Simulated assay, not measured.
Amino acid sequence: MLERGITTVLGFDYGARRIGVAVGNRVTGSARALEIVGNGANGPDFARIAALLREWRPDALLVGLPLTLDSGEQTNSQNARAFAEVLRERHALPVELVDERLSSRAAAERFAERRASGSVRRKHAAALDAIAAEIIVEQWLREYATSPTNG
């Protein structure tokens, strides 16, 4: 668990082609999807990630850890762990892995709700990854707020 004094976090939903990014604030208990960062043959767009870190100045980083429903590891679990380690090494910030088992389904439901309300359009479907990152941050904020060692 991350130490006390954490206010702003950036959360990442790691994927083989895209990485969703969201920002969260522990004081307000809120999270917001920011954008999608590319991830391709040459790896993640670390220049864009560095720009986001300069812009938001987070105290810590969160990376969604995809697990199977029975808490088992899968191929993308190792990729997310490796991404988290690279973030830790490159940016000298605390990085925490957050169980993201149900974030994709929740992101799809949230995207559908936002489409129905007219706040997003079908062509913004890539935003699903950023919404998944938002959900990862919200989950961490809920767990962090209820942890007896943080407060």
Rank of each mutant, 00 (worst) to 15 (best):
V137T: 07
E113T: 07
E138Q: 14
A41T: 06
E35A: 10
I36W: 08
R17F: 07
A60H: 03
R54F: 06
R115N: 01
E113A: 10
P44L: 01
A31F: 00
T7V: 13
E96C: 11
L2S: 11
L87C: 10
T8V: 15
R54N: 08
G38H: 07
Q78R: 13
E113H: 12
R105Y: 14
R81I: 12
L93P: 00
R115K: 10
R115F: 09
A92M: 13
D13V: 02
R88G: 00
Q74I: 07
E138L: 12
G15Y: 02
A125K: 11
N42M: 09
L2T: 08
V98H: 08
Q139L: 05
A130G: 07
N42Y: 15
R110M: 10
E73Q: 14
R17L: 12
F12I: 02
D59P: 06
S77C: 06
L52C: 06
H91K: 05
V86A: 05
P58S: 10
A80P: 05
R17N: 14
I136A: 10
V63G: 07
R48T: 12
V86F: 00
R101V: 04
E109S: 11
V21S: 05
S103G: 03
N42C: 08
N39I: 10
A47G: 10
N76W: 04
A33H: 02
A41I: 02
